[in-house]
Design a protein around this nucleic acid. Sequence first.
DNA 1: GTCTATAAAAGGATAGAC
DNA 2: GTCTATCCTTTTATAGAC
Lengths: 195, 195
Amino acid sequence: MARTSGSHSGITGPKILQEALRLFAQDGYAAVSMRKIAAEVGVQAGALYNYTPDKQTLLFGLMRNHMQQLTEAWAEQPTDGGPKAQLERFVRFHIRFHHARRDEVFIAYMELRNLTPENFEIIEALRRGYENELESILKAGVASGDFSVPDTKIAAMALIAMITGVNTWFRETGRLSLEDVETIYWDMARKSVTG
Amino acid sequence: MARTSGSHSGITGPKILQEALRLFAQDGYAAVSMRKIAAEVGVQAGALYNYTPDKQTLLFGLMRNHMQQLTEAWAEQPTDGGPKAQLERFVRFHIRFHHARRDEVFIAYMELRNLTPENFEIIEALRRGYENELESILKAGVASGDFSVPDTKIAAMALIAMITGVNTWFRETGRLSLEDVETIYWDMARKSVTG
DNA sequence: GTCTATAAAAGGATAGAC
DNA sequence: GTCTATCCTTTTATAGAC
């Protein structure tokens, strides 16, 4: 029988991150209490403070981890091929990665205003770094003549918004597979920056 | 000298809506207290309840007003021209209207989860109605041969996300005018659904 | 229509026992 | 590492005076 007090399962730390992530995504940072997180983890509220100095640090850690994993995962992608191949790779990578981390993506966008100014700057820098990866592809494509866009910065923002939007409507149970969706978005993205 | 108590300015109602809108957009619904709203309006918290039965109704009213004004403003736009002219009109209208109401747009997207289930359904129905307007244009364009898209529903979601994203980065003080931006987005949208 | 006062609940965070 | 107990603040909403 499970112990109901003084438990030392050794996985409380990860469980706190997991439940905080889920609850922040579901109800919003400001609407989630430390007591609620503790209840989902299966401990009392005071125990949370063995793992985080405060609620803000919990939020910031989740967002920083996500943005770092995003940029690292992209850095591990192949870099061969011309601008068109790279853009297709970016579109498919972005849609797959963001679909696999719906809660993290949601929080990283919705909870920016609940970060302290210092933490906000760190997250924003990571975000800009990722956006610059896409703009670099577009710039290379303009230079090579593969793409035709009047402003690579705006085109990058437009494409990022478009493909991130998949998360707002796509469901596994729908009539299309994620790969189908990737292909449709890649087709629209490609056409929007060519000819 | 202004009265500091028992004031009857006659504009408290509109001011409550105005300050609630601003604060909800700035800090988030859950993070804004009735006391804070009252302080910005210049009354005590209890006075707010002469104008709204509770905080939830205040949020819902702001979101419903926005969605209704959006759909009504689109309904007043001209309907002449072919699918391409209509799509250009939609893109430019959407960008202009959403830029003019940044706070309302932000709340209508960010605070959906803070609506009661009944209120959520009402707002979602209004949103779907607006999205269907765009999809109708795409369907007409496919039927006429002006557009080539494999799935009008997905194309509509992709285009809406793209053009709504303008609000996340555009600033009046930047190097481009809003009309410049409209033109760039219309160009990308047009190409993404043609040839 | 607004104020003051207050009820009743919930919040973040800490102290000390085990 | 976790619990219980608690401090102190803040919250939404209401009651009744003016």
